[in-house]
Design a protein around this nucleic acid. Structure first.
Lengths: 240, 240
DNA sequence: ATATCAAATTGGTATAGACAACTATATAAT
DNA sequence: ATTATATAGTTGTCTATACCAATTTGATAT
């Protein structure tokens, strides 16, 4: 594993070697790896050099140190945090389910006062109102009402909104969603919602309101969703 | 800047000192900082100790190294600490409410299999179990059960957990929470929860499970909360 | 059996020194 | 003027050692 005459630094060779053992499963998550002194003696290298290799792996999240106990393979997976700014379709696929959409209604309405404020348009200006039933593996999972200013996406059709609206926006309209705020709250299903979602009236549901914004801060859409609590949990990873 | 008789490690003192100089603007972005040997001689400490301090700052994105040239203050700004990674107390104050806590129970229990996995401790190892009723403006708003490995915070007391645990952790224990995952789901209150929260059985509640991690990826705590849906909405801002 | 203490083991901090690799600059040779 | 060459300064790698701090283990006393 270690070649002292290689042009590659020793710490780097050891680092890659340990990483490989983890990735091949020769070292299991949670398992204690040999102590620093053990590596040092086994390959006849300085303990400080071993520490340099292990330090890097700790920084990369592969290993966890515990003073007095040992160094362990991390249990938490290394993964790119998909920051939650995903479309319904992406979200469902990430959960291993097949997304589906049934358009319940598609029309334009004059913006109410509240909506106008949130979308930064004049009160009464035309906005799309899109009601959709969202499916996961052919079963209802959420009810959505989306509002989008007509001026931003002039030629929206029912066909488009039956697919992935986000992909259409980004690919065809060259608009990029830059940020969003989401508000989540717990509630219980009302009669009309329960019927569409095929649950009982009074069953728990998760209400999510998402406001999405473009690069320049212009609001793109407001979406109010009602998710079946028995089929949907919202997960978010945060770092600082 | 360096006190050799301080209980704080020398590399840590230097690290904080340099960081402070950057944040105060005494070292400007792009500027070359003194060389490793210079720090070493100036404070009469070993160059390897200087390297440890600088390494950490490089890993944190404050500095950039260039072999043969020097070490420079990074031009790109450090990401502003945390949106959403707030303590209950911070959260409540941000909402204009006065936070309060009533400790319902405080004990140590052996970690269950699931908990051991999540906290990265051995099954059966002692963990604190802290049950708290959270108040906002003197009224119940949430029920919390937190689990923390005893080994990480050896001398936790009931007095401490009746205040802000996070502030205690960061200020007194020198542990920094680096990331967290949160899972939110809607549910309805069971009898025992309803009584404590002063709501009706079957009323909607928001369940939040938060897993917090330290800098090295070590899990610090698992917190399961039950929030009154009528008094609490979860809001998050996301950017990409 | 249980509690206590001591030893062994582990990672954490720190030192002093050496040489390599790279960059920039000054100097000398062409 | 241009091109080598030396040299001084930088970070990068590595060694060998020492002691500290936290934890586990095992022996011992009760």
């Amino acid at each position: 594993m270690i070649n002292k005459h290689s042009p590659l630094p020793i710490y780097y060779q050891l680092e890659q070697g340990i990483k490989e053992m983890i990735e091949k499963g020769q070292l299991q998550p949670g398992e204690m790896i040999p102590s620093e002194r053990e590596w040092s003696e086994r390959y006849d290298i300085s303990r400080m050099t071993v520490r340099q290799a292990i330090n890097n792996l700790v920084n990369d999240g592969y290993l966890v140190r515990q003073r007095g106990k040992g160094t362990f393979v991390a249990t938490k997976k290394i993964e790119q945090p998909l920051k939650g700014l995903t479309s319904f379709s992406e979200d469902m696929r990430a959960r291993g389910m097949e997304p589906g959409t049934k358009v319940l209604s598609f029309s334009t309405i004059p913006a109410s006062s509240s909506l106008a404020g949130q979308l930064h348009v004049s009160e009464g200006e035309e906005v799309y109102e899109i009601r959709r039933l969202r499916l996961a593996d052919q079963l209802p999972i959420a009810l959505e009402i989306a509002y989008v200013p007509c001026s931003l996406v002039p030629h929206l059709t029912e066909e488009i909104v039956s697919g992935s609206f986000y992909e259409f926006i980004e690919q065809k309209q060259l608009l990029t969603i830059r940020s969003a705020t989401q508000i989540l709250e717990a509630s219980v299903a009302r009669k009309v919602e329960a019927d569409l979602l095929q649950i009982k009236e009074g069953a728990p549901v998760l209400l999510i309101q998402r406001n999405s914004y473009l690069e320049n801060g212009q609001p793109l859409e407001v979406v109010k969703s009602v998710y079946r609590a028995d089929r949907y949990k919202f997960m978010i990873e945060m770092e600082r």
